[in-house]
Design a protein around this nucleic acid. Sequence first.
DNA 1: TCTTTTGTCTACTGGTTAAATCGTCTTTAA
DNA 2: TTAAAGACGATTTAACCAGTAGACAAAAGA
Lengths: 150, 150
Amino acid sequence: MITQKMKYALKALLVLGDEVRQPEPKALTIEEIARRSGTPKRFLEHILLEVRNAGVIASTRGRSGGYSLIKKPGEVSISELLRLIDGPIAPLPCLSRRAYQRCEDCTDEASCRIRKVFAEVFWSYLLIIESLTLEDMLRSDRVAEQVMGA
Amino acid sequence: MITQKMKYALKALLVLGDEVRQPEPKALTIEEIARRSGTPKRFLEHILLEVRNAGVIASTRGRSGGYSLIKKPGEVSISELLRLIDGPIAPLPCLSRRAYQRCEDCTDEASCRIRKVFAEVFWSYLLIIESLTLEDMLRSDRVAEQVMGA
DNA sequence: TCTTTTGTCTACTGGTTAAATCGTCTTTAA
DNA sequence: TTAAAGACGATTTAACCAGTAGACAAAAGA
């Protein structure tokens, strides 16, 4: 399960992504982003901070300040955002590329059967999710496919 | 990330799975399973209870009691075990089939862009992980006789 | 029958994380 | 100069994770 925070981050980026595609994009205040995305304003602060520090959005302070998307939607990786907000994606620390950690109780990684089986699943999963960008989300406006029957 | 508890569950099932493939399989005590799998004994109790209630293993009490695998390894689904121990697999509650929950803040599920994008990823992921069984794990590398290195 | 050996069950605990909220400070345009 | 905006650390509440502890129940052997 992804966290609520991650959902908020995505919603906020969708708002900013929609805005940047407007004829005359403006910077949006936290207030406005919170309103449009249905996110608690004070919580959104922290989230936008992190996203800004990752270089995805920019902020300007003071009057007529606000946030705006500075990367192109096609260059905003969903998996990177996941890592940023929710931490490592890998099912086991010993399978994470960016946050590798040896399992303390593990004597021989190469022969670990748990690692082996999750590795297979994980690589396939990674392949899919690493290709996803904000653009894919912005584009997916097309109404209701029936694929997702609960 | 899967929990430590899930890792313990898998290790315990590997021990029991290895045992059931022995010429003369015996029921193994918690003590023995804990030793072979490197799991805290008192914690393992809880885990084995849950796994037993799911009908994967059986227990007998008293002298010469213990636990043994009652399903065939090929019929022990890893994804079911994941659900049992760690809860829903889906990235969003509204994508879970067995533990469906509407997102409270969601006005229209069919048009939710977050749901849509994660649905695509999730179905592919499910397809892979749902096919995995204990047998796949047991088969993968019969070199290491002990599970400790998991 | 009594004791030992095993599993069963309930409760508790200490640490960490999730999801915020609060107060204060800094920056900037009008 | 001041109101409107973001920046940032501190605190909070509840849940969850990873165990531990103690009492209880059943089964088998002496």
